[in-house]
């Protein structure tokens, strides 16, 4: 029997994965862990409040939040990879503004793009309906209203009789 990955709503695989990453980062890159921990706080908040199945909000916020955090992590990796340097980054208001601003931008994307897409799709559907109605009208003009009244069985019968004929 396959073991369930979830128990009482907790994804233990995810927790174990995150725990493993945190342990590795703690062991080998504590400064990076400090910057990620502080910088990706909006993503964590988004993860908590986003109850959708696909976690699209989390991805939106997370993706942009990472954009804001990654330059500073790169700075650590390419410069002084020390806890002090990490502390300087997370204590710098501008750095925090950039990180959290990027997260906010992600949230803004999450709020604005779906309605735009929905409106766009609705317009496409209405246009399609108009095209179909026009096609139906053309058919009726060419073949008469009985086209609309003919049931599918009738058309099937017509087809079979014409084949016989």
């Amino acid at each position: 029997m396959a073991m369930s990955n979830t128990s009482e709503g907790l994804n233990w695989n995810l927790i174990l994965g995150i725990g493993l990453v945190l342990m590795l980062l703690t062991a080998f890159s504590l400064p990076s862990l400090v910057v990620f921990s502080v910088g990706l706080l909006p993503t964590g908040v988004a993860l908590i409040i986003d109850r959708s199945d696909q976690r699209t909000g989390t991805f939106c916020v997370g993706g942009m939040n990472l954009c804001g955090v990654f330059p500073y992590v790169m700075k650590l990796w390419t410069g002084k990879h020390t806890l002090t340097a990490a502390m300087e980054i997370i204590s710098d208001v501008l750095s925090l503004l950039i990180m959290y601003g990027a997260a906010g931008f992600g949230w803004m994307i999450f709020l604005t793009i779906p309605p735009v897409i929905a409106t766009f799709l609705s317009i496409i559907a209405q246009t399609r309906v108009k095209v179909l109605r026009a096609t139906q009208q053309e058919i009726i003009v060419a073949w008469g209203p009985e086209v609309a009244n003919a049931k599918q069985t009738d058309t099937d019968r017509d087809a079979s009789s014409s084949n016989e004929g």
């Binding site: 991805f59 939106c60 954009c67 994307i109 999450f110 793009i113 779906p114």
Partner: peptide
């Protein structure tokens, strides 16, 4: 239902855009 689907599609698109930007920046 269509509206919901459109919104879901929009959210997916937003997520895709966000991830795409992130990957591009990184």
């Amino acid at each position: 239902e269509r509206l919901n689907k459109a919104e879901q599609s929009g959210q997916q698109a937003a997520a895709m855009i966000s991830i795409f930007i992130a990957l591009t920046v990184i």
